[in-house]
Nucleic acid binder design. Structure first.
Length: 448
RNA sequence: GUGCCUCUAGCUCAAUUGGCAGAGCGCUGGACUGUGGAUCCAGUGGUUACGGGUUCGAGCCCCGUGAGGCACCCCA
């Protein structure tokens, strides 16, 4: 607050962070409500954790690239702290802290903001919300299948069109690199390269592999393998032939076979997911099946990432507790929903405004508002200084409030009300006694 | 984090080679004393993102900062 004279800046939000209008908040809340509903129908319970963690808790979990994106600073007590980068590492810390009181397998969902110091772009912010479900304490592929089934239910509950879940397995990826004869030191770069298959094509991947120092024969074998994609059973069979003899890879294929069987048993429609041997995923802590949900229109990259991380919790505990989970990005979901006009959202929560024609009806207006609120209706009365019917209706129109109840001297004398539908312009007179019921009827009638 | 592009009224955008900052929409008031959304009339609109430099003169040229966008990197 001292050098304000030199850098005069208009009031502004920080890069990559934003304000939300009432309309945006109403949409976000609706999306969250839908997700919560799906999560809870599977028996996931909510938890929350602090936005701030000891830096040490977050350090060394995300790989070199991820580490650079951590918000890190020293608090007034001299502690090294960091803003959480995802909800998975805080969960691991949570499990380590609360281990004794948890019932395993522990199923929780967690919805809240996370922070990454990236360069912002469309659908990419420095503060964004993740919506996670995780199962802690079991190696069963049933758990992996369940979180993906949650995804599928969530996406269909939101009406997101053409979202496809790409699934792969970390140890399959490793086997693939081994089989192709890629030296272990190059493996990470190889994963990164093949993950770009969709974006830069086979030719691009080949070039990048060569540039990394992979021999051209090895590069060719990698390309052959990642070309496999599609109907899980077929891809698994083909991969079994290609990777026969590699025990770790075969085991990964067994796990995937089990996962896909379970997924089918969960009732997941076949078109929504596929086995994609080119999917890599960057986060260091994944150890088993990994998945990503992508949507083509608009092209935002992925809407979510998922995977198994059997050693992460062990980093806090000294003893491994296996876990698997799936995460959805709220702002990217909202972006898709907006783009396609799914989930039409009102401008305001107000369902009806009660207006007085003259000062003399003000008390009656408040009394009526009370009754309507007691009937579960969202009601407002005009709070401006001047009672003026025109002004009040203009206000209601601007806020897109659907109904107006008008009380003037005539209505008061006759014990009736005027109910105006601002959407259609229709207007009716009704006895005071049926006000609440009629307003409720008109509200549900006008709703799609 | 690297590179490139952009920033003018609340919004969308104009402004000749450097020469008086404009329009539409919106907003406010009125025509309309019990009726929003239509029409008409009048009014309101600016530290040209911010700070500096060059120049007689900068929205325009130069430097820095901030924010947005695109690509890379990475990812939700």
């Amino acid at each position: 607050m001292s050098d304000g004279a030199q850098t005069h800046r208009p009031p502004q939000v920080l890069r990559g962070m934003r304000d939300f209008t009432p309309r945006q908040m109403l949409l976000r809340q609706r999306v969250i409500d839908i997700l919560r509903g799906v999560f809870e129908r599977y028996g996931f319970d909510p938890i929350d954790t602090p936005l701030l963690e000891y830096y040490e808790v977050l350090a060394g979990k995300y790989g070199e690239e991820g580490e650079k994106l951590l918000y890190r600073f020293v608090d007034h007590g001299g502690r090294e702290v960091g803003l959480r980068y995802d909800l998975t590492v805080p969960l691991a810390r949570y499990v380590a802290v609360h281990r004794a009181e948890l019932t395993f397998p522990f199923k929780r969902y967690h919805i809240g903001p996370v922070f990454r110091a990236e360069r912002p772009q469309r659908g990419r912010y420095r503060q964004f919300w993740q919506c996670d479900v995780d199962v802690v304490g079991t190696r069963s592929m049933l758990a992996d299948a369940e979180v993906l089934s949650v995804w599928i239910d969530a996406l269909s509950a939101l009406g997101v069109p053409n979202a496809v879940i790409h699934i792969n397995h970390r140890r399959l990826l490793e086997g693939l690199a081994r089989r192709a004869g890629v030296p272990a030191t190059l493996a990470l770069g190889v994963y990164r390269a093949i993950d770009k298959l969709e974006k830069i094509g086979e030719e691009g991947v080949r070039e990048e592999l060569i540039r990394l120092g992979v021999e051209s024969k090895a590069a060719e074998r990698v390309l052959e393998l990642i070309r496999l994609r599609g109907e899980p059973a077929e891809v698994i069979a083909a991969a079994r032939r290609a990777l026969a003899g590699d025990d770790a890879a075969v085991e990964a294929l067994d796990e995937l076979a089990e996962l896909f069987q379970s997924l089918e048993a969960f009732g997941a429609p076949p078109g929504r997911y596929l086995l994609d041997l080119s999917l890599a995923r960057g986060l260091d802590y994944y150890t088993g099946p990994v998945a990503e949900v992508v949507v083509r229109e608009p092209a935002l990259g992925s809407l979510g990432g998922a995977g198994r991380y059997d050693h992460l919790i062990g980093m806090f505990l000294g003893e491994d507790i296996p876990a698997t989970g799936a995460s959805l990005g709220l702002e990217r979901l909202v972006e898709v929903i907006d783009e396609h006009g799914l989930l039409p959202t009102p401008e305001t929560v107000t369902e009806v405004i009660v207006v007085a024609v003259e000062e003399a009806q003000r008390r009656e207006v408040l009394r009526l508002a009370r009754e309507l609120r007691d009937g579960g209706i969202s009601v407002e009365t005009y709070l401006g200084e001047r009672i003026d019917l025109r002004r009040q209706l203009h206000y209601a129109h601007r806020k897109a409030i659907p109904l107006a109840v008008i009380v003037g001297p005539d209505e008061l004398a006759a014990g009736v009300l005027t109910l105006r539908d601002l959407r259609s312009g229709d207007q009716e007179r009704l006895p005071r006694a049926v006000a609440v019921r009629t307003v409720q009827e008109r509200l549900t009638a006008g709703r799609p």
